[in-house]
Design a protein around this nucleic acid. Structure first.
Length: 477
RNA sequence: CGGGGUGUAGCGCAGUUGGCCAGCGCGCUGCGUUUGGGACGCAGAAGUCGGCGGUUCAAGUCCGCCCACCCCGACCA
């Protein structure tokens, strides 16, 4: 008999995640190994993520466009590091129109190469710069080990690609978009990410510098949740993106790229989810309020449904769902919508009709603790306030969790104990790629990013050398 | 690609030393009673037993090959 309850996080975090994703109807496995079907509920969540990001992109001057999914294979080889980085995970089309193609086409793993090619055509003068384009797209990377949302052969994302006249502008753009991601993650998703620069080992293939937002998952692992790359002139030299500056000098443009994918849904799940199921931040939840009518007899039904209609109509602008399914008990519905992570449940039954009240239950607080009765008079404000409070509470709780799972570590033994199962290690670090590789080899922990706003000096936990840099290490997805 | 595991109804599983009619729970359909934390009764529908080949009077069960998926490792957003 199939268990009604999820595997708990403590029992097996990975099973918990897999069961949750499928039972909450966020996604399912596609027919081809490693592919993912994003189901309507999961896609609705993605659409809300898209809206929150897209409005931020527009507000910072970007426009949307669409570039082709098929890329001539030769494009991928033009930038040396790029080809080395992506070669193992390319899917290649060799047949089309019933015959073998003259040149194989790769399914885009990312679009720097096509977009760079187009930018080379479109840019002649400094007056054409900056060019600030984003596209919402799917990309294909042939991963060996897959997991729904976190790593699949095909995934959905947005990729911004910009070209600038100066290095300073391009660096500013890279950091601006990192800031946009952090703002989105913290204020919309209530995922308290840590922004920072990646190490040379971990940066994007072809980038001068990569920045990321990193999130602490409930099993203590890190999830890279968005990236922003300063590409220098690497791609403009490879793709001949040149312009004449004010002094009639031919210059290579400075480019950036930045992306955030459906992986972010995994970050939300593993930041807020509990043993009852998904917990969604109100700002992004496809359904913010679910109303469950309760009645026994037909004569009760009429009055109850009337109250339900009144409440539902009073919540204009909120995403409200009335679960009026017949023949299913309220208890079943409570569990169902908890599994799906709806932030707030409203119950309206005969007693409420009689007392002129309604019952509201917060998803983030279990059982009686999160349930209270509010008077029908003024329910609109009560519900809106409650949603805002849930959004705040989720962030506060996640920040607290994050801070309790990042450990200041001074020696390698402590380090090993921490990254083994406790969480992240925050350490003084004298930047050394070989040491970083050695640590990864021995502990499976990777350098997630360089901490910002570091003051003073310390002693590297690994080499014992003096340094002014602090970094985070953790095992990651 | 290495290691491990699993394929029998939509899902989760049982199926004895091969034996005739392939079963159980959940879900699904219909009717009735229920409904403030995962309701109950009755009646139903639903299966190329992952595929191909072999052994046998007889294969879900034994043998061989293949395929798929999941988990753990090396790579990644």
């Amino acid at each position: 008999m199939e268990d009604l309850k999820l595997t708990t996080r403590a029992e097996n975090f990975s099973d918990w995640y897999n069961q949750l994703v499928q039972r909450a109807e966020l996604a399912d496995y596609g027919p081809v190994r490693g592919t993912m079907v994003v189901r309507p509920y999961g896609w609705a969540l993605w659409e809300n993520i898209q809206k929150a990001l897209d409005s931020r992109f527009k507000a910072t001057g970007h426009v949307n466009a669409a570039f082709p999914m098929l890329i001539p294979q030769s494009f991928m080889t033009k930038e040396k590091e790029h080809v080395e980085g992506f070669a193992p995970e390319l899917a290649v089309v060799t047949y089309g129109g019933g015959q073998e193609l003259e040149e194989p086409l790769v399914l885009r793993p990312t679009s720097e190469t096509v977009i760079g090619t187009m930018y080379a055509k479109w840019i002649q003068s400094y007056r054409d710069l900056p060019i600030l384009i984003n596209q919402w797209a799917n990309v294909v990377r042939w991963e060996m080990r897959t997991k729904l949302f976190l790593r699949t052969l095909e995934f959905y994302w947005q990729e911004g690609h910009t070209a600038h006249a100066t290095e300073v502008e391009a660096v500013e753009e890279t950091e601006r978009m990192l800031g946009v991601y952090a703002d989105f993650a913290i204020n919309e998703a209530a995922v308290p990410v840590i922004p920072g620069r990646k190490s040379e080992n971990e940066k994007f293939a072809g980038a001068r510098a990569t920045y990321s937002i990193e999130a602490v998952m409930q099993d203590g692992k890190a999830l890279q949740s968005g990236t922003s790359h300063f590409l220098g002139q690497n791609f403009s030299k490879a793709f001949d993106i040149k312009f004449l500056d004010e002094n009639n000098q031919l210059q290579y443009a400075w480019t950036t790229s930045w992306g955030l994918s459906t992986r972010f849904i995994g970050a939300i799940i593993m930041t807020h989810g509990d043993d009852q199921g998904l917990v969604l931040p109100p700002n992004l939840a496809p359904i913010q309020v679910v109303i469950v009518p309760i009645y026994r007899k037909d004569e009760e039904k009429g009055a109850v449904m009337e109250a339900v209609a009144r409440v539902s109509a009073g919540l204009d602008g909120l995403r409200v769902h009335v679960d009026d399914r017949e023949g299913i008990t309220p208890g079943f519905k409570f569990n169902h919508w908890e599994l799906k992570g709806v932030p707030l449940r409203v119950e309206i039954g005969p007693k409420d009709v009689q007392n002129n009240t309604l019952a509201i239950s917060r998803r983030d607080l279990p059982g009686r603790e999160g349930k209270r009765f509010v008077p029908m008079a003024g329910f609109e404000a009560a519900i809106r306030d409650e949603l805002k409070d849930i959004q705040r509470a989720l962030l506060t709780r996640a920040i607290d969790f994050r801070d309790r799972h990042i450990y200041d570590v001074n020696n390698y033994d402590e380090f090993k104990a921490v990254v083994e199962d406790k969480g992240w290690a925050k350490v003084w670090w004298s930047d050394d790629s070989d040491a970083e590789k050695q640590i990864k080899e021995e502990t499976k922990a990777t350098l997630r990013c360089f901490a910002r706003d570091v003051e003073g000096e310390g002693v590297c936990f690994y080499s014992g050398r003096k340094t002014n840099q602090v970094v985070y290490f953790a095992r990651s997805y």
